[in-house]
Design a protein around this nucleic acid. Structure first.
Length: 490
RNA sequence: GGUCGGUUAACCGAGUGGCUAGGUAGCGGUCUGCAAAACCGUUUACGGCGGUUCGAAUCCGCCACCGACCUCCA
């Protein structure tokens, strides 16, 4: 199995040739959502980025195992220092339901939204709560090897110890000494040897609802440990690609590296990939700024910042128009531009089927196809790929205009090209406006009936009778009543 | 203050040391009874100041601005 794929590896800060560990298999782990609220724009970016990667590798005939976790062990919120409350538990209290009901509810909406965005399901979607045992086992290993210590029922990772043998901070470019000097002293951290040590296991306070027994206390696992435990379980001690948002680089991924490296004695991940963040009108998305938009709101247009609804495919197309390592700015203007561009692309795809064929062709489809692959191979450059596909759009429309010619084999290969890149790899799809069709039909009939009435008023009865007859043939019966005109469908 | 990333024409966004993606909008044209669509052409691009170079938006330095992360937690 061969590929020409080049991937930007955050670890080396360079583009590298992608060489899987096993010739025909690829393992990918991506950090999934913490399910305590509706999925928002920030969830869509990594989902679409790594869906593209998953689809492309699959297209290249690799057997890909794509693991994306669900973080459902709530975690503390930073509202007031030291007085954190578990996000999921907080939600559970607010809504008077079980924590796992909160989890289920938001897992469902997340899945629904991801489905709308046409992202493929991961091969495995493990939940943190389903892997408490694996996490405890990993913590045991870390304690036994001296990289973790227990303190008052909680367990912490010893970063100073780790840093003697390995290098903590290599992914995000941090130097431990600088971290130490940066850290402000905060009270209530007596349990830790050093304030930058991170929790592997936390003892639960009496009112804490989500808790599991462990050798150290009734409690719950720290955030980072789930990813180390589950990635090793499903992808092995070494695997190909680990993905996630740039905001997770520090501390989450850094801690993951530390845990896994300390436990396994070697680097687990070969390629780290990070998608960039999203801004809205140049600002970050935050509840406090009033520009926090969920995917449901985006799809329905039900938000003060939105001038209209934007369909899932508009969003997907919009995101694919930017490279995954660039920040992407959302605005009504930009989204409306994307909507039109997407529709133009879809219209051309439709037109492909009804092209007038010629004996010869003025089009080099093979060259175009090569350019498409080159774009994807260059660190998944979807915007450049789209620009080539729009060259294809121009070709299709020019054939219709008669300024270019295409022969039968050319049409077949052009159709295959669009099918492969637009639908199979970019994961776009036609959006049938089925819901609107019925309304449109009704409106159309009303309009025709109105036109007939106008004709009758002008006493052009041959026209009005023709309209009635033609509608009848289509199964629509006109009923002239005393108080107006009515119609009904068969 | 530190780490990382960014600043490209009206908007969104690619990009290579010299050959100036693409989408949207605007303008002009072709087509058309009119309109729309489509096609063709086009519009003040590369944050500022220096430097390297025959040549830099692309390499280096400084400055400005923007963003993420930088305590616990996720």
């Amino acid at each position: 199995m061969q590929n020409n794929l080049i991937i930007y590896n955050t670890l080396s800060k360079k583009k590298e040739r992608f060489k899987p560990i096993h010739p025909s298999f690829v393992g990918i782990y991506v950090c999934g959502p913490t399910v305590y609220s509706d999925a928002h724009l920030g969830h869509a970016r990594p989902a679409i980025t790594f869906d593209l990667l998953f689809r492309y590798l699959t297209h290249l005939k690799y057997k890909v195992r794509y693991v994306r976790n669900i973080t459902d062990v709530g975690h503390l919120e930073n509202e007031t220092l030291g007085e954190g409350e578990d996000r999921i538990e907080k939600k559970a209290r607010q809504e008077q339901i079980e924590p796992m009901e909160v989890v289920q509810k938001y897992v469902n909406t997340y899945h629904k939204n991801m489905d709308q965005l046409n992202t493929l399901s991961p091969s495995i979607e493990p939940r943190a709560t389903g892997h408490i045992i694996e996490q405890i086992e990993l913590i045991k290993i870390l304690i036994n090897s001296g990289y973790a210590y227990e303190s008052n029922g909680s367990v912490y990772f010893d970063i100073l110890k780790y840093n003697k043998k390995y290098q903590y901070g290599k992914l995000s470019g941090r130097v431990l000494d600088e971290l130490i000097s940066n850290i402000r002293d905060i009270e209530g951290q007596d349990e830790k040897r050093n304030s930058f040590d991170f929790a592997l296991w936390k003892k639960a306070s009496p009112e804490h609802l989500m808790r599991w027994p462990s050798p150290w206390s009734d409690g719950f696992p720290g955030w980072h440990v789930e990813c180390s435990a589950m990635s090793v379980k499903y992808l092995g001690e070494e695997f190909d690609i680990h993905g996630g948002g740039m905001d997770l680089m520090f501390p989450h991924h850094e801690c993951e590296i530390a845990q896994s490296t300390a436990a396994l004695g070697k680097e687990s991940v070969h390629y780290w990939m990070h998608n960039n963040m999203i801004t809205i009108n140049g600002q970050k998305m935050a509840r406090s700024l009033g520009n926090f938009i969920t995917l449901d709101q985006l799809f329905s247009g039900d938000h003060p910042a939105l001038e209209q609804a934007y369909s899932p495919m508009t969003i997907r197309f919009f995101m694919l128009q930017a490279h995954y390592r660039s920040t992407l700015d959302f605005s009504n203007e930009a989204l409306q531009a994307a909507e039109k561009g997407f529709q133009k692309l879809m219209k051309a795809v439709e037109s492909l089927n009804k092209l007038k064929l010629s004996e010869n062709s003025t089009i080099d489809v093979i060259k175009l196809k090569e350019k498409c692959y080159e774009a994807l191979d260059d660190d998944l450059n979807s915007p450049v790929l789209l620009s080539h596909l729009f060259e294809g759009v121009r070709i299709v429309n020019s054939v219709i205009d008669g300024t270019e010619k295409i022969d039968a084999p050319g049409q077949v290969s052009l159709k295959a090209l669009f099918n492969t890149f637009v639908f199979e790899i970019l994961g776009l799809k036609e959006e049938k406006s089925g819901k609107n069709d019925e309304k449109l039909t009704g409106d159309l009939i009303n309009m025709i009936v109105k036109l007939r009435q106008d004709a009758k008023n002008r006493k052009e009865f041959d026209v009005s009778d023709k309209i009635r007859l033609e509608l009848n043939k289509l199964g629509v019966t006109i009923k002239d009543r005393k108080d107006g005109v009515d119609w009904e469908r068969e």
